[in-house]
Every structure is written in C-alpha cells, then in structure tokens.
Design a protein around this nucleic acid. Sequence first.
DNA 1: TTTAAGAATGATAGCATTTATCATCAAAGG
DNA 2: CCTTTGATGATAAATGCTATCATTCTTAAA
Lengths: 141, 141
Amino acid sequence: MAAKQTGFVRKTKQREVILEVLRSTKSHPTADWVYQEVRKKMPNVSLGTIYRNLKTLTEMGEALELSYGSTYSRFDGNPENHYHFVCENCGSVIDLDIPVTDALEREVAEKTGHKAASHRLEFYGLCRDCQTNDSTNGSLH
Amino acid sequence: MAAKQTGFVRKTKQREVILEVLRSTKSHPTADWVYQEVRKKMPNVSLGTIYRNLKTLTEMGEALELSYGSTYSRFDGNPENHYHFVCENCGSVIDLDIPVTDALEREVAEKTGHKAASHRLEFYGLCRDCQTNDSTNGSLH
DNA sequence: TTTAAGAATGATAGCATTTATCATCAAAGG
DNA sequence: CCTTTGATGATAAATGCTATCATTCTTAAA
C-alpha cells in the first residue's frame, strides 16, 4: 500500500536524493548501501524510508529490483531493460551490452498463450577479472 | 559448509523423501511447502533439514533454486535448464516449452569476455488463465 | 560383525533483510 | 493561512534462512 489507491505521489527531498544516489552508480547496490550513501547527505534519514522509496521508485518505473539468491535485493537505477552477468566468484553484477530481444515475448505468447509483458535474462559464470586473476579464493559477497 | 571440502555426501532417508516430494510437483514450491509435504511422511523432520538438503540437492545438480523477488526461494525438481513464466496476477510459476539457447552464453563470452556457464530467462506477465478470467482481483501470492 | 570417524539430524537460538505501526511533519491545493 | 493526507523517523515485529550443538545414523575399514 505504498501509493494507495489514488496513486498520488508527492515530491520529497528524500526520494530525490535516493534516486540521485541510485543513478550515481553502476554497482547495483543493496538497500543498505543506498542507506549509507543517503545518510552522508541526510544523516537523519530512516532505513524504512529507503525501503519505502526503493519500492515506490520501482513501481514508478524509475528503478529495477534485482534478486539473485534469496538473501537480499539489489537495485538498478537504469530502468531500461538490459541483461546482467553475475560472477559466481566475486559476486559482482555487471551490465551486459548485448541487444534486448523483445521478440522473445512474442514467441512465448504464440507458443504458450501466456502474455508476457517483460522478461529478464541473467548469465552466471566467471567474470573477466576473475578469469585472469585465477583466484580460487571465493571471496564471494 | 554443507558438504565440506571432501564433497562426500551420505545417503539419507530424509534427502530421499525431499527429492521425491520435489519431483512430484511442477509447482516450483517454497521450502515451507516442501516441509509440510515431507512432514506427512516423516512427522519429525526438521525445517533445518529441509533447507540443508534443498541446498545440497541444488549443489548436487538435482534441483534448481529460483528467486523471483526478495522474499523467498522456490525450488524446481527438474534440474535441466528451462525457462519460466511468472504470472503477475496469480503468482504462479509455469514451465515454458521453448528451446533453451545456449548460443547466448557464447555470445556473451565473445562480446564481453565474461565466461558464462549458465543462464536464466524469465518472463513476466498475465498467464493464460488470468487473461480469460479477466480477474482484476490480484489474489497474488 | 564390530567398530570408529564424521556426516546428517532435530531442536532451537540467532541473524539479516524487510515490513508494519504510529505519532508527527510537511507537500499540495485551495 | 488552513486543511488534507501522503511521507517521514523511530521503533517494533515479521519473515526467511542459517548457525550451533548434542545426538543419531551411514559408511567403510578392521
């Protein structure tokens, strides 16, 4: 019930800063990372406000919520659909510069009858850095 | 540290039943659903055992862990890679019968240098049933 | 078949992330 | 200004999962 039935959303300094912080990085941060960053500019901000606004921004289409694994969410300030690579060694999430194929959604509709409005594609493996550093030391997370 | 360094895994009645339950459904159940089902056959089973074995089975390649949204994981007793459709109205997760394109992994390696070992593809939208029942009543989850 | 090693269990406590509650504050429109 | 009500900060609470530990059970070797 973040935006209630009305869908009316007020403009607040907090939400403004949160979006600013989200847009300032390509690291797909967690809610807590955003919290720490926003606190640098607004020391009295509440963690609840971070969660509330991350949810609101996602619903508004200003951000994406990513979830790889069950423990916590990551957020992406780039709301345009794009694909991600998740490194199983170092845990980083990397934006991929390969074309988004919306044709897949039509294919699903035609073959299965389920009307897809969006899709997500993620790759898992060893990122470029972890290959060269051939580090068997799983310093994940 | 489920299977430690040795990787040695013993055969237990509990794990057997858990895999049995997992294979008996196409509903992509949660850990708790599996727990309830296993309890019907083994009333004294512990929830910890469910989580431990779901993790072990996933590591053994006997199951898949899915995570849509941050709240909980779903598990899939079909370990072969396949794609899913997630209905945004009723919340069900449906197996899709469209071909898995491993060529995507090669494309990522060539274009980005990140070595993908696997990939996941999910579609979101209105499933066939929810379209015909045109139910605006979001009985999600 | 006995025995020893240690993997797996059940029970429970603990942890981390996220959500709900509520009194107060402030944005938007008259 | 004044009113309405969405948003906030502080905090409690819920949820999902993991860690701990004494005990039990599997396995393989003696």
